[in-house]
Design a protein around this nucleic acid. Structure first.
Length: 684
DNA sequence: GAGTTTGAAACT
DNA sequence: CAGTTTCAAACTC
């Protein structure tokens, strides 16, 4: 079992736990958010998005999705209070009154289509869903939730815009939140929450193809409209974690005997590439996985915090006052997760669920877990998070309670999700690591690397560093190696121990080693600048050797470069920029011309194919006579003249010539086809 | 594709 | 902290 010992854990920055100390502008979209106490705020420096988490001592955890800022807040709320909270949020809320866990999903703002989902106790009546599974399971089991890339959600169960009845709520075993397709923005988003009762992991769910217990499905597949979040509760065997014990780092690396039903939450994005993943490790038996496509957050971390929340309450609703504010905490008994999600671009925030109930009864005071997913570029927001690269898993320090940290590269988990995750969780003998590594070579969610990330990362070629030093871009970016050409790579879960050690070494050397190098400068300075500045001597800072130039930013006062030409007024820089721009434009034009020509040719071939087939042969090449060639050349030359007369750029001239050539080809082929058709008709 | 150059990271 | 070495990416041929 690969875990981080408490010793190593203790070496890591303490600030991990200090999320509540983080200050940042509060971009609340609802009054409810503004009234919370003991909140945790995280702010995306790039976007200003604010994620707030409710106080840990509260049990309520509204889940809200704000179209305005792409925030998703998930909180468990008391039923009556949920309504209030939703009202305060400016939109009607749908509340399901029922004992047990309640999940309020509501939107703030435009959509005005709040969704309230209730997660009944395990002991509650079996749902109508075929996947409800074994009702004997004591603990509530849930977990696959996929939310469409758009925050706008419309309730499906119980009718759109209508409040769900208690019965409906009880029957609400399956909710689908379909990703809203870009083309049909008006299409309602389905929300499917599947309650899975994985009794001993032997109850595969077959009724709802998109929803598979314990498995997160690929999110960006164009043929898979539905985004699903599967909430599968681990068996209620032991929710209580044992302080001091090591915690499985990830389901992937978890030894077979520790593999438990996996809780996973996936939030689908619309055409988004980068998937961020959270793998909270609540307890020994509780492995949770959260994936949020379309966001930029990179890390997943579990943060524990002692709370005053009452334990032993299955739902926790009876004792908790409504926590209207900045709720990003999903609480459920002993395990509480706070999931601030601050995507750099889409700014979606998700707070997944929690579950539990069964085992909560035992203890009086328990530590709770919060899951925090900071966006990758969040130096100012949660600087502490960036100190830990993804993949880091921390076990609770001695006496620290059931605290677990997991920082996992989203893409890595995304790959995992493509793998038979259920199998991983249910098959003791399965080599998770091997499977993971195999999967890591696959494109993300069926998309190429270039398609899946706004920050395409080149594969590394490390040979000596084992990809465990900052020389390796993958490692430096806090990512596992994926599709790389490296040799003897240790930057993977198979070598988690070494990796963690390397991470620690790097952090010892430089606590900010894993922070983005490009961040905001001082007040009044440029928005972006290198955190340390470059030290170039020979490149003039006008080659990609220079980190400033590579990041397309100007050198600043903190740079120690010699002979720098990377400043605003630098003629060399301007020339370079112009050349680069021109080259880019040219490439684009050529690409466009090629595409057009290609389409024209293919279109022509399509049209002439019937003729050819009817004629039973190819077009006579003899049509390309000397006269035809000359005429074609004249046409092309004419285009050159035209381009010169109109003072077209070279790129444009090339485009015109290419286009004319395409037209000539079309005419030749058409004539040939026509002649052949005519001859065929005459012959018959 | 091989070899060179370059500068960050690592080391002393 | 400065100097040196190592390393992998960028670049050149």
């Amino acid at each position: 079992m690969d875990v981080v010992s408490p010793e190593l854990n203790s070496l890591l920055p303490d600030e991990i736990m200090d999320t509540e100390e983080i200050e940042g502008p509060c971009d609340d979209t609802s009054p409810a958010l503004a009234t919370s106490t003991a909140t945790t705020k995280t702010t995306d420096s790039m976007t200003g998005t604010t994620v707030s988490t409710s106080g840990l001592q509260k049990l309520t955890a509204p889940f809200t999705i704000s179209p305005a800022n792409h925030q998703i807040i998930l909180n468990k709320v008391a039923s009556s209070q949920a309504t209030e909270a939703a009202k305060s949020a400016g939109t009607p809320a749908q509340v399901i009154k029922q004992e047990g866990q309640k999940l309020l999903v509501t939107t703030i703002g435009k959509s005005g289509q709040p969704i309230v989902l209730q997660l009944p106790h395990t002991g509650s009546k079996p749902g109508i869903s075929q996947i409800s599974g074994d009702t004997k399971t004591a603990a509530p089991q849930f977990k696959v939730v996929t939310i469409g890339g758009r925050p706008e959600l419309k309730p499906v169960a119980g009718g759109a815009g209508n409040q769900l009845t208690t019965l409906q709520a009880q029957q609400l075993k399956t909710v689908q939140i379909a990703k809203k397709t870009p083309t049909s923005s008006a299409a309602p988003v389905k929300l499917i929450i599947t309650k899975t009762v994985n009794s001993k992991g032997l109850s595969p769910q077959t009724s709802s193809p998109p929803v598979i217990a314990g498995r997160v499905l690929p999110q960006t597949s164009p043929v898979l409209p539905l985004r699903t979040i599967t909430l599968s509760d681990p068996h209620n065997t032991s929710i209580q974690s044992i302080p001091g014990k090591k915690i499985a780092i990830s389901p992937l690396k978890t030894p077979s005997k520790n593999i438990k039903p996996v809780q996973s939450v996936t939030v689908g994005g619309v055409g988004v590439s980068q998937f961020k993943t959270i793998i909270p490790l609540a307890t020994q038996s509780n492995v949770q996985q959260i994936q949020v496509p379309g966001s930029k957050f990179h890390y997943v971390r579990l943060v524990t915090a002692t709370t005053a929340s009452s334990t032993g309450q299955p739902s926790g609703l009876s004792t908790s006052s409504i926590q209207t504010a900045k709720p990003m905490v999903v609480s459920s008994g002993p395990v509480r997760m706070s999931v601030p999600v601050i995507p750099a671009q889409t700014m979606k925030q998700v707070a997944p669920k929690p579950l539990t109930s069964a085992a909560q009864v035992v203890t009086t005071t328990q530590t709770q877990q919060r899951l925090i997913m900071p966006a990758t570029p969040l130096p100012q927001i949660q600087p502490n998070f960036t100190n830990l690269p993804p993949g880091t898993v921390l076990t609770p320090a001695p006496g620290g309670g059931n605290v677990g940290y997991a920082v996992v590269p989203a893409q890595y988990v995304t790959q995992l999700q493509q793998s038979p995750f259920v199998t991983l969780a249910s098959s003791p003998g399965f080599s998770a690591s091997s499977a993971i590594q195999a999967q890591s070579r696959l494109p993300l969610n069926g998309l190429s690397t270039a398609d899946t990330t706004s920050r395409p990362r080149k594969p590394c070629n490390c040979t000596k560093s084992q990809c465990l030093k900052l020389y390796c871009d993958c490692f430096a970016n806090g990512e596992f190696c994926n599709n790389c050409n490296c040799n003897n790579c240790f930057n993977n879960l198979e070598h988690e121990t070494e990796r963690l050690k390397a991470i620690k070494t790097c952090l010892d050397r430089n606590p900010e080693a894993f922070k983005p190098k490009i961040g905001k400068g001082k007040e009044g300075e440029s928005d972006r600048r290198h955190s340390k500045g470059c030290n170039c001597k020979r490149s003039g800072c006008l080659k990609n050797y220079c980190e400033c130039y590579e990041a397309k930013i100007m050198c600043s006062s903190i740079c120690k470069c010699i002979g720098c030409k990377n400043f605003e007024e630098s003629p060399e820089r301007k020339t370079l920029m112009h050349l680069a721009d021109a080259a880019e434009v040219r490439v684009q034009q050529q690409t466009a011309a090629k595409t057009k020509l290609s389409s024209q040719i293919s279109d022509l071939l399509m049209r002439t194919t019937p003729v050819n087939s009817s004629g039973g042969g190819r077009l006579p090449y003899t049509f390309v006579t000397k006269e035809v060639i000359e005429a074609t050349c004249e046409c092309l030359v004419e285009q050159v003249r035209k381009a010169e007369q109109t003072h077209q750029s070279q790129a444009e001239a090339e485009r015109m010539i290419l286009e004319e050539f395409g037209n000539c080809l079309m005419r030749i082929i058409s004539s040939a086809a026509k002649a052949k058709a005519d001859s065929a008709s005459i012959g018959s």
